[in-house]
């Protein structure tokens, strides 16, 4: 059955904008990480995420059908048109918070990609198949680091627990469902995000337990990123930096 084009576009932007914005955040670490191996690993993660954004946004532009490119979507939309989850736009904080945010996102991506490879939309299935290999590696690495720091020294444990308190209220948004998700589920393109929660909680619960970290009790979830209704104040600054050249010198080839 034919799916509403605009809804498919929204769905694609939610994934592509999330990987794009997160890649930007991760790339901010370049040259500043705690050890050289981490500089390499963070650059590598950022690189994979941009590659994925290129595919998701490239398909989004095609679905949109206005002759735009992935670059147009990345560099020429304002904050209200971005559909990334809030988690990805939060400032890096310390290295522990960056890696914990990465893990919370990687875990979601790993569950989601596992479903999307069976999508009824061949392009979505193809992108997911490609991304899932990277995501599997990302989640393994971020989980290992979260465990290492959570179950490390007293200080590293304390910092990781604080990071978890800060980030946890942003986890729930990834599992919100609305009419876009309902349309995707009905067309067999993507699962209802709510249906991923159990698998996610099992994975995250296992890793955080090994990391000796305690999941906060509160159920409150910040939201507004994936619908574009209300981003954080941080996104505008991120875009001002990311889009500056394209905005200041429009129409150039680079």
């Amino acid at each position: 059955m034919a799916v509403d084009k605009d809804k498919l576009l929204q769905f694609l932007l939610r994934i592509g904008d999330s990987t794009l914005v997160l890649s930007h955040r991760v790339s901010e670490w370049c040259g500043h990480s705690p050890i050289l191996e981490e500089d390499i690993a963070l650059a590598n993660t950022a690189l994979d995420l941009i590659g994925q954004s290129q595919m998701w946004l490239g398909y989004a532009a095609e679905v949109q059908g206005e002759g735009k490119s992935a670059d147009d979507l990345a560099f020429l939309r304002d904050a209200w048109d971005f559909r990334n989850v809030l988690l990805t736009e939060l400032p890096n904080g310390d290295f522990g918070r960056t890696l914990l945010r990465q893990f919370l996102f990687d875990a979601f991506q790993s569950v989601l990609m596992g479903r999307l490879i069976k999508s009824s939309d061949e392009t979505v299935a193809g992108i997911a198949a490609k991304a899932s290999k990277e995501v599997a590696y990302h989640v393994e690495r971020s989980a290992d680091t979260v465990v290492g720091l959570g179950d490390g020294t007293e200080e590293s444990h304390k910092r990781m627990q604080q990071a978890l308190e800060y980030l946890w209220p942003y986890v729930g948004e990834m599992f919100e469902s609305d009419e876009v998700d309902a349309a995707m589920a009905e067309a067999g393109i993507a699962p209802d995000p709510a249906s991923l929660r159990e698998e996610y909680d099992a994975l995250v619960g296992r890793v955080l337990a090994e990391a000796t970290l305690t999941i906060p009790e509160g159920k409150f979830a910040h939201k507004g990123g994936r619908t574009g209704y209300m981003h954080t104040e941080h996104l505008g600054h991120l875009l001002a930096q990311m889009q500056w050249l394209q905005r200041a010198y429009p129409g150039c080839e680079w």
Binding site: S27, I40, A43, I50, F75, Q241, Q246, C252
Partner: peptide, 26 residues
């Protein structure tokens, strides 16, 4: 070089630059 990663003008240029900086660290 890292000074420009967050301001690279296209996704491709950003990838090329990130890959380069990653090579340097290597």
């Amino acid at each position: 070089e890292g000074n420009w990663i967050t301001r690279a003008p296209t996704l491709e240029r950003k990838m090329i630059l990130l890959a380069k900086v990653q090579d340097e660290a290597g």
